[in-house]
Design a protein around this nucleic acid. Structure first.
Lengths: 339, 339
DNA sequence: TTGAAAGCGATACCAA
DNA sequence: TTGGTATCGCTTTCAA
């Protein structure tokens, strides 16, 4: 049984396909009477316009691309879900792509998504080498950066105030009385991580403390590597009493390291994570962490991506949202604190 | 700058579009010489066939649909990632859809995916009421069930031997000396959960133990509800010494409940999870759990979905893969064990 | 072998 | 208002 097409509807309603098309798109002039008739026929025949055909004519595909490092990572999985929901609500579906931060994958995916004529790209991953960048700069597809910024791209971005988040973590720890602090950072190419560290460091500076380079360890994004790095820090003679980790995975790793070394958290060590993923509620102790307002971020990003392309030229804008400190069980005053 | 089309190539190569089309698809007869020339031109013009146009002619869209309850759930996030990878490798992209197990969402998504003319649907979610079922039975799109079976659908399925997984959990616990066991199950509509419980119960029976209905608590899929249910079990006077949880989230909840009640794991209580998600490595103690061979499952499912549609009729087949017990830190002999 | 031409299912322009 | 028709980019007969 063939799908019913616009021709079937036209024939059944005794009109031309042009008229049917017009009522579908609410364009052109169609008399109220005809319009209702056509509507009725469409209903009766359970007619659904073929997206492919109209896309071929240069209309929307109602498909969006989402680029993230890894949808299996709880943080990005959460994002993927939110994007899906917001997009779906607006009539779009989304193709999620995990880049693994590999240039080759990034470029392949961008090429693929362009060929599929997606109506927009939501980018939540680093872009690696210049290959992807130049593919994107051609402006052949609307772009928006999410939970990340980039000056190299002609795209608006909506993200968390990472610096403020880092500062919040620092103040929380400082307020508890910590003076020897260290951080587990992500790769230097991850700007959000850099900003978090910067905010953290600035807040320390305000309190008259200096964060030495040696107290910032760069990690791969994995629990295991967080454990490794934290282990390294915790074995130092003047080991820190508090750790700020640029994401919850690293924080979870830090927790494991502490446990292995027999250091109690938060008794002997405080740990702050970032992102407030599900991991934070599952570790023991549960993680104090910085929550990003993901729902709002995604909502705004989608609005920018599929909303009216701004009559006054597509200005590149940055929307920055405030993160929130979620205090759970992994932070407390330092062991040497005087009651 | 317009995309180069088949016409551009044809003109440039001084042939007809039909010949170009033929070399693209490796069909029809084209002289070796012309073929090479056309190839060269395509290369030089960096020509990429428009998927939409060829899809309109009834060819593949190279897009697959994936239906799962929630891509933000670590287990399904993992699946989504694997599906993405396997699909991508085969030249397909995938639209992931979170159903929340809600009939309305399920039906909407199926309709949407059909309209987008996806080449296949990978189903890893319950199908709810009959609405979705009848939409799917029309056989308008290839189907495969993943990590789940269904007799109601004309689709092959590839899944874990859940019964065996449940039995494995039971034997592990039995072997440690546990005699008072209970389980945290998922909703009765989730067949995989039912099978896990069945396997668990059968293994107990083999050992001469009976699992009472009262010792099986049905939970929502969330850490919080696992905590709630486990709390209920653990407050009983004859509380169990071991808990089998039908997924890692519930197990994580059980760990929290135990902690809140001052029961040590594994000293005072053993907990076994299911799925071997990232949660299992992050809890403290790390979870002993049953791992599903997801990579193989997804690989096989994809093969069924996009492979040759089997000349001998599309027989419904079931592929069952063996799960594996991963022993971590959450299981030990019961507290009253002798020696 | 090759290519002209008829679709595929919409949109859009332009006469009527 | 209507409807005829070209068009989008590709596949597929079917003559030549």
């Amino acid at each position: 049984m063939r799908e019913t097409t616009i021709y079937d509807v036209a024939k059944e309603a005794g009109v031309s396909i042009a008229s049917v098309s017009n009522v579908i798109n609410g364009k052109g002039k169609v008399s109220a009477k005809k319009r209702e008739e056509i509507r009725a026929v469409m209903e009766r025949l359970n007619y659904r316009p073929n997206v492919l055909a109209s896309a071929l004519m240069g209309k929307k595909t109602y498909t969006l691309g989402l680029l993230v490092p890894d949808v299996a990572n709880p943080f990005f999985a959460e994002i993927a879900r939110l994007v899906e929901d917001h997009a779906h609500q607006a009539g779009y579906s989304v193709i999620a792509c995990s880049t693994d931060n590999k240039d080759e994958r990034i470029e392949r995916y961008i090429r693929l998504l362009k060929r599929k004529r997606v109506d927009g790209l939501m980018i939540g991953t680093g872009l690696g080498g210049s290959g992807a960048l130049s593919q994107l700069k051609e402006k052949s597809v609307p772009l928006v950066m999410i939970a990340r910024g980039s000056d190299l791209l002609p795209a608006s971005s909506v993200l968390t105030d990472d610096r403020s988040g880092g500062a919040g973590a620092a103040r929380h720890l400082l307020g508890l009385g910590h003076r020897r602090l260290a951080v587990l950072a992500e790769n230097a190419k991850v700007t959000s991580s850099k900003d978090r560290v910067r905010g953290f460091r600035e807040a320390l500076a305000e309190a008259g403390l200096k964060l030495a380079e040696a107290d910032i360890l760069v990690c791969e994004t994995s629990v295991a590597d967080g454990e490794r790095a934290a282990g390294e820090l915790l074995r130092r003679p003047d080991r820190p009493t508090a750790l700020f980790c640029c994401n919850d995975m690293l924080a979870a790793g830090a927790l494991r390291a502490a446990k292995r070394l027999g250091i109690r958290v938060p008794g002997g060590l405080s740990v702050v994570g970032f992102d407030n993923t599900i991991l934070a509620e599952v570790t023991d102790p549960a993680l104090t962490t910085i929550a990003q307002p993901l729902d709002r971020i995604v909502g705004k990003a989608l609005e920018l991506l599929i909303g009216e392309p701004e009559a006054g030229g597509p200005e590149r804008r940055r929307f920055v949202m405030e993160p929130e400190l979620i205090v759970r069980e992994s932070t407390a005053p330092p062991p040497d604190a005087i009651g």
